[in-house]
Design a protein around this nucleic acid. Structure first.
Length: 492
RNA sequence: CGGGGUGUAGCGCAGUUGGUAGCGCACCUGGUUUGGGACCAGGUGGUCGCCCGUUCGAGUCGGGUCACCCCGACCA
């Protein structure tokens, strides 16, 4: 009998540790030796690739085109937009030299002091500056607008403390940058892209999100408005999962991007930028996973169905034949299938391993079952097993995948909705926020109360949510009349 | 940068008053197994983070130094 093995810390014991172990043990990623960076392993990267492909199609449907801009940004670009530099200056990696040379003892290399750069280069923390420097050359007329550009790339922010997927020094993302002739059009685009993110999060990741607009202090550096989608993790903390910014004419002015309008008058272009990153992987993991490991939505699972045979060696040819037939039929239906008949791992190991990796559906094909014309189906989201007639297995699996996709979304949404509270009393708030959750509270609109809440509870105003009832109220901290009801939570 | 902690095999850890470097997992070989993370036997793998000191002798004691982790501040 197998001895008891702890494969994962239980979620309830130490949520952070559980998350970290899960990421490593499910073979998604690991901490790199390079400070604050991570290695994304093939399985994790396969999920990211699938996300990329879907998002990319969604962007293109709205008219966005892909392009690529340089990794290195001249230092002076960053100082053109005052707030932007303020926001990013503290976390920039700087390239100061362009050459190494062997050291005096010839057993290593040192930076060649004669190869110092005239002007230092910044490794992009985001690309607004270098892109708008380029846009200057691309935009002359209102006929050149709107300009809708996206790039998939890596960026680097020298973070103090890092955590796999959620906050690494280097991360992969997409950043969209658009230029428009009018304020209205730019604002509409910023909101449109937020909708795309929300659509992706809910319909593909099965992660319910709250859409809203950030308070002034939480705004992106250089933006007039920052829109956000906020998801709730299973410990009740918020995760900002995607942002879209209305940048006004700040970058147009900073990089002198002017166009001639229909009246032949020069105007500065209006800007937006929007991005999601590998942080979405963190959201995916922390929203659905359980103590057995990952739970992946079928829409994003690299392998949707795994088939595991069980039988004695002399029974394997027959099992192989049937399993391959089922796999072929499922593939014809657009389902990604893996048939794992490797003989160096026992079935029990495979069961646990594919559960850890979040494969949505497992089919177990046993020699006994085959005689009776049945096959065992296990769904990862509920861990329920059922014997299904082997003749109708393909259709059954296809329906089941749809059902799992819907079910994990519903489960996540029910959990979140059960942890959204209305609260108008600060003492009560301070007590209840300790257990996590989202709080809808009246806010007087001042950064002073916002700062006080953060200071005293570590919670922040996540956003002013769209589509909630805005009723009059009293700010629970200051006692002044509230300007809006806002979403407050502790966040990653 | 403030407060706390840890550095010993790929990973997780033990190492008593200073006396030949250990355990579990993983890995390799052979065999038996295979319906929920198999078992037996044998084996590979280490400048004990680094430097200096004390000592006949340092993983262990002292001084220094570096790295990493956690809690704050900062952030997608």
């Amino acid at each position: 009998m197998a001895k008891e093995l702890e494969f994962l810390t239980k979620r309830s014991e130490d949520y952070s540790k559980w998350y970290n172990e899960l990421v490593v043990k499910a073979d998604l990623a690991e901490q790199s030796d390079v400070r604050g960076c991570m290695v994304i392993k093939p399985y994790g990267y396969a999920i990211w690739e699938k996300m990329q492909r879907i998002l990319d199609d969604m962007f293109k449907e709205t008219g966005v085109q892909n392009a690529y801009f340089p990794l290195l940004i001249p230092k002076n670009f960053l100082s053109r937009e005052a707030e932007h530099v303020e926001g990013f200056a503290k976390e920039c990696a700087v390239v100061t030299h362009y050459r190494l040379k062997t050291n005096e003892t010839h057993d290593g290399v040192v930076v060649d002091p004669t190869a110092k750069l005239e002007e230092e280069l910044i490794i992009r923390p985001t690309s607004e500056t270098i892109i708008w420097n380029t846009f200057k050359n691309w935009i002359q007329s209102y006929r050149d607008l709107p300009l809708l550009i996206n790039q998939w790339c890596n960026v680097m922010r020298w973070e103090m403390r890092t955590r796999l997927f959620l906050r690494t020094s280097e991360f992969l993302w997409q950043e969209g940058h658009t230029a428009h002739a009018t304020r209205e059009e730019a604002e509409a685009r910023a909101q449109q892209m937020l909708k795309v993110y929300a659509d992706f999060a809910e319909n593909y990741m099965a992660v319910p999100v709250i859409q809203g607009v950030k308070s002034e202090t939480e705004r992106f550096a250089g933006a007039l408005d920052t829109y956000t989608i906020e998801a709730m993790m299973q410990d009740g903390k918020a995760l900002q999962s995607g942002t879209s910014h209305f940048l006004g004419q700040n970058f147009g002015k900073a990089f002198d991007v002017q166009f001639l309008n229909k009246e032949n008058k020069p105007e500065f272009a209006w800007a937006t930028s929007w991005g999601v990153s590998t942080r979405l992987m963190g959201a995916l993991i922390m929203t659905h996973s359980d103590d057995n490991g990952l739970v992946l939505p079928p829409a994003l699972a690299p392998t949707q169905v795994v088939i595991i045979p069980i039988g004695k060696p002399n029974q394997m040819p027959e099992l192989d034949q049937k399993a391959n037939e089922i796999a072929k039929n499922l593939k014809a239906l657009g389902v990604s299938v893996k048939y794992d008949n490797s003989d160096n791992k026992r079935p029990g190991f495979k069961f646990a391993d594919y559960e850890l990796k979040g494969v949505p559906v497992r089919l177990v094909l046993g020699a006994r079952d085959l005689e009776q014309g049945i096959i065992e189906v296990m769904r990862r989201d509920t861990l329920e097993k059922e014997n299904v007639n082997i003749e109708s297995i393909e259709q059954y699996v296809q329906n089941l995948l749809d059902d799992i996709q819907k079910n994990i979304f519903k489960k996540a949404k029910d959990y979140r909705d059960a942890h959204i509270y209305e609260c108008e009393n600060y003492d009560e708030f301070k007590e209840r926020i300790k257990d996590g959750g989202f709080f809808l509270c009246p806010w007087d609109g001042t950064s002073e109360t916002e700062a006080q809440i953060k200071e005293e509870t570590q919670a922040t105003i996540r956003c002013v949510p769209f589509g909630i009832e805005q009723k009059p109220g009293i700010d629970m901290v200051s006692g002044k009349a509230a300007k809006a009801r806002v979403l407050i939570a502790r966040a990653y």
